[in-house]
Design a protein around this nucleic acid. Structure first.
Length: 84
DNA sequence: CGTATGACGTGCA
DNA sequence: GTGCACGCCATAC
């Protein structure tokens, strides 16, 4: 179980309609300081089983997305998440 | 193996 | 409240 695998599992554990921050995932992965790596891993990770679009910045911003931040906001909206 | 990059976070102006 | 700069970890080249 590598750090990336653990991150993927934590992201996959996010309930539909909910969002978690990169820092939260990093903490769940065992490295609270690895939030940079979390974003990097998800960026290279294209596993459809990992709803990485549910991972946003801790300040409430959507952050980025490999397919485009617009698509990310759109998916979240489809799941019932409303940015405020 | 070493260097550079990146979907971040926090602090200070 | 907004903007700029620094620090950090893991991965990719």
């Amino acid at each position: 179980m590598d750090f990336a695998d653990w991150v993927r599992s934590a992201v996959a554990a996010i309930p539909k309609g909910s969002t978690r921050s990169y820092k939260y995932i990093a903490r769940a992965a065992g490295s609270p300081r690895a939030y940079r790596a979390v974003g990097n891993i998800l960026n290279k990770n294209r596993d459809p089983n990992v709803p990485c679009h549910r991972v946003i910045k801790s300040d409430g911003s959507l952050g980025g997305y490999y397919y485009g931040s617009r698509a990310k906001a759109r998916k979240l909206k489809e799941e019932g998440y409303v940015s405020r």
